[in-house]
Write a protein that binds this DNA or RNA. Structure first.
Lengths: 247, 247
DNA sequence: CTGCGCGATGCAAGATACGCATAGTCATTG
DNA sequence: CAATGACTATGCGTATCTTGCATCGCGCAG
């Protein structure tokens, strides 16, 4: 492992939160100012950070240029996209696609219900493992060993009074999800928001992703939400089959 | 400048093109396999690359997580967005937003004309300096010194038989654009595609970006394209004013 | 004027990155 | 079935490159 590189990548994460000044960055890394400056020089040369007029630094254009390339390189995404659009059209609600990447569930695509509501995108964000539709949709269908280690690696933080914060409660919920073939997030992550999700399997047979339909409780009651399940499963099964799954 | 970091960032660009194997990467950098492996280790630890089952590497989830954060951090983008949507709605054509970032014009947002046509996004891509609407829209309104050095730093490659490949021809076109207040890309970058664009100014008074309306020649003739200009200028002026510009 | 933070550069010291060698795994090939 | 080739992983000595410090210049705020 390379110390220099490790430090530089920490900078990217740090600067990603908000624009930072040299002093902050040097302190954060625990290195001399000149060292931090050298890193920023190199990062800037490649376009990964950009210097603002007030001498603070933010992420640069190379970051989103490569970010989009990264997204485009994901086969699952292009396969799932048409199914997501169809699902979005029939339900009229927001559809998410989350994929398991190195121990985290990451949102890799989204179809917006109403374009005027909010354009804040979750793409690229990490879905909390125990209280989001996509995560539970994946978790429930993972082999036991992998599932346990994944759950063990995360804090079961409480976000609402519906959040499942004990391993037992979560496991029970996952067992139920496994039986019926879909998972439900019942306002566990955000008050007033619930969703249903179902797993997507790859050609090798293992679960690799999940798709979810998200809706506000105020507009869509539980019964209506569950009525989306057949369309949801059509979308996920269609995607799985295109990926070579024979289930 | 840091050699280690420089090499590692080269890897990201290289891997961004397509998944690469260790051997390729080591050869590309001109270093020993073990060195390349150490880099990849560190990059993977941070999620910037991901290892595929066949031992090749592609960009990882940190890349697009940070990519989206980078986009969100751009104030111009959120200010321009509503204007772009309005412009897209009134013209029915694709709207792009390009911004000047460290000597390159980069696409930072886009409103799609017809969602079913193609979802290939140019966001994050670099707009060739001499033959795209957004670039010429910016270039034309840049101070002379900056404009010249920017043009001088790029090859004026020919993409179609309309591409302006001499500095004189380009400067003449830019002078004309500056006079009338908008620039035109007349199939200079891609045959069958033309567009109009106008500059966006910041509170400090300088041009920082440009917005363009793009359309296929087959559907929209030149006259119709030019009829979009008032709406386009309304959008760019509105954005400029919100950025504090007093022109 | 003075202090503060940042940018840039030179230099000495030593931490660390580098190349090489080795060993093990796996898939492909003869 | 042996052999080949590509990759992962680790250890080690050496030389390189990084690091921290000092210095100077700059712009800005008090």
């Amino acid at each position: 492992m390379s110390q220099t590189l490790d430090r530089a990548l920490q900078i990217l994460d740090f600067v990603g939160e908000k624009p930072r000044r040299i002093g902050e960055i040097a302190d954060f890394l625990g290195v001399h100012h000149s060292t931090a400056l050298r890193f920023l020089h190199t990062l800037r040369k490649h376009g990964f950070v950009q210097e603002l007029p007030d001498h603070s630094y933010r992420l640069g254009s190379a970051m989103f240029r490569l970010g989009f390339k990264a997204l485009e390189g994901i086969e699952l995404r292009s396969v799932a996209r048409p199914h997501m659009e169809r699902l979005g059209a029939t339900t009229g609600e927001t559809v998410h696609l989350g994929s398991l990447e190195d121990g985290d569930v990451v949102y890799i695509d989204k179809v917006e219900a109403d374009h005027r509501v909010r354009m804040v995108s979750r793409i690229g964000a990490i879905a909390t493992i125990h209280c989001t539709g996509v995560s539970k949709g994946i978790l429930a269908f993972l082999p036991e060993a992998e599932r346990r280690s994944l759950i063990g690696a995360h804090e079961l933080t409480s976000f609402t009074d519906h959040t499942l914060t004990s391993i037992d409660a979560l496991e029970a919920d996952l067992a139920l999800s496994r039986e019926r073939g879909y998972a439900v997030d019942n306002e566990e992550n955000e008050p007033g928001i619930h969703c249903v999700s179902a797993p997507i399997f790859s050609g090798e047979g293992g679960v690799v992703a999940a798709m979810s339909v998200t809706a506000p409780v105020s507009r869509i009651d539980r019964e209506t939400l569950l009525s989306f399940v057949p369309a949801l499963r059509e979308a996920t099964n269609g995607t799985s089959h295109e990926l070579g799954w024979r289930g």
